[in-house]
Computed example of a mutant assay.
Amino acid sequence: MTPKEKWLAKAIEYFAAHGVGDASLRSIATGLGTSHRMLIHHFGSREGLLSEVVREVEARQRAALADLAVDDLPLRESWLRFWDKLVEATLIYGRLFFEFSAHAMQDRPYAQGLRNDLVAVWLPPLTEICRQSGMGPEEARAYARLSLAATRGLLFDLLLTGDRKGVDEALLLLDRLFQELVEHPADS
């Protein structure tokens, strides 16, 4: 692991625990056990560091989705395992994810790439999963967007309420809708 990768990993853990807020580069460096100069050396600026954190956290989530696509288990079982992994990651990084999402909505420079990455890059693989399950192209695209939005909403709910049982029940309802769409596709 390079020094930059080491500091990036530490920064991700730090932000997961403390959020970003308006923390200065100096206070971030202190929290990481280094100097602001070391962070400037590796990331250029506070915004550069935050940009790298955003990219890495997002890459981890896409990797988890890719694991779902190559799993040899039935789709439903793979999806439920993915949900468990997603919940585990959300309990660690969810505050960071939603904070960065808000930063993207506010057009903060280091989060500009997220405007596309938070939705657009997720839709093709989710749509393909739906299509492989037997949905038509239009239903698959619509369901992919619905499932992405609903899943994120449930994760947001979990962070606010801590009600894992409630969000799991809602996810199972989303799963039943998926099964219904696969078993009874709409007439074209």
Rank of each mutant, 00 (worst) to 15 (best):
M1A: 15
M1H: 15
T2H: 05
E5R: 08
E5W: 02
K6H: 15
W7H: 12
A9Y: 04
K10Y: 00
A11I: 10
E13T: 07
Y14N: 09
F15V: 15
A17C: 01
H18R: 10
D22V: 10
A23S: 12
A23F: 06
L25F: 08
L25V: 13
R26W: 09
S27N: 14
S27M: 12
S27G: 05
T30K: 05
T30C: 09
I40R: 02
H41A: 12
H42N: 04
G44E: 01
R46K: 06
E47Q: 11
E47A: 13
G48W: 01
L49D: 02
L49E: 00
L50E: 06
V53I: 12
V54G: 07
V54F: 02
E56M: 12
V57L: 11
V57W: 09
V57H: 11
E58I: 07
Q61V: 11
Q61W: 06
Q61H: 14
R62C: 06
R62T: 07
A63H: 03
A64I: 11
D67C: 07
A69R: 15
D72W: 14
D72N: 14
P74I: 13
P74W: 15
L75S: 08
W79Q: 14
F82N: 12
F82C: 10
K85W: 00
K85F: 03
L86I: 00
L86R: 03
E88I: 05
T90Y: 01
T90M: 07
G94Q: 06
R95Y: 04
R95S: 08
R95W: 04
F97D: 13
E99S: 07
E99N: 04
F100I: 08
S101F: 06
M105Y: 04
M105I: 03
M105P: 00
D107M: 14
R108D: 03
P109C: 02
P109I: 03
Y110P: 08
Y110Q: 10
A111N: 03
G113P: 00
L118R: 09
L118H: 08
L118K: 07
P124M: 03
L126H: 03
R131V: 01
M135G: 11
E138P: 01
E139M: 04
A140C: 06
R141Y: 02
R141N: 00
A142I: 06
A142E: 12
Y143N: 02
L146N: 06
S147M: 06
A149T: 15
A149K: 13
A149G: 15
A150E: 14
G153H: 13
L155F: 10
L155I: 11
F156A: 10
F156G: 07
L158Y: 10
L159Q: 09
L159W: 10
L160H: 12
L160P: 01
L160T: 09
L160K: 12
T161Y: 11
D163M: 10
D163H: 12
D163W: 13
D163A: 06
R164K: 08
G166V: 09
D168I: 06
E169S: 09
L172S: 02
L174W: 07
L174H: 05
D175G: 10
D175Q: 12
D175H: 14
F178P: 03
Q179S: 13
E180M: 07
E180H: 13
E180W: 07
L181Q: 03
V182Y: 08
E183P: 05
H184L: 03
H184A: 08
A186S: 04
S188R: 13
S188H: 13
